[in-house]
Amino acid sequence: MVKIAIIGSSGGVAKEVIDVLLATKKHELLLLTRQDTPTTAPTPGTTKIQADYTSVPRLTQILTGVHTILSFIAVTNDPESTIQKNLIDAAIAAGVKRFAPSEWASAGLEQMPWYAYKAETRRYLAEVNREKKILEYTLFQPGLFLNAWTHPYQSAKHVPSIEFPIDFLNRRAILIEGSEDHRFTITTVQDIAHVVARAIDFEGEWPVVGGIRGRTISIEETIALGERIRAPDAPFAIETLSPSDLKAGKITTSWAPRFEHPSIPPEQVEVFSAIILAGVLSAISAGDYESSDEWNRLLPDYEFTQPEEFLAEAWRGKP
Rank of each mutant, 00 (worst) to 15 (best):
E177P: 07
A314K: 04
T76S: 14
L277S: 05
F202N: 05
R198V: 00
H182I: 01
G12R: 04
L22G: 01
S10R: 11
I212P: 11
K48P: 00
P42T: 07
L241Q: 09
Y289A: 12
I276S: 02
P101A: 04
G279V: 08
E203D: 11
T253Y: 14
L225K: 05
A14L: 07
P243W: 09
G11C: 04
K48T: 15
E28T: 10
I229N: 03
E110L: 11
G317N: 14
A199S: 12
L311D: 08
F259H: 12
A234Y: 15
R123T: 03
V208D: 14
Y302L: 03
V56G: 00
A314Q: 12
S179C: 05
D293H: 07
L87K: 06
R258T: 15
Y137N: 10
I223H: 05
T185C: 03
S55C: 07
F145I: 13
T305W: 00
T46C: 05
D89P: 00
A274H: 15
T54M: 01
S161Y: 08
E303L: 07
S254I: 05
V269E: 09
P44H: 05
L277Q: 08
S55Q: 12
R297V: 11
I284L: 13
G211F: 14
S291H: 11
V208L: 06
K133N: 09
P257I: 04
A105L: 10
A256L: 09
G210T: 15
E227V: 07
L30Y: 03
P44S: 02
A283H: 10
W295Y: 01
I176T: 14
V189H: 07
D52N: 15
T33C: 06
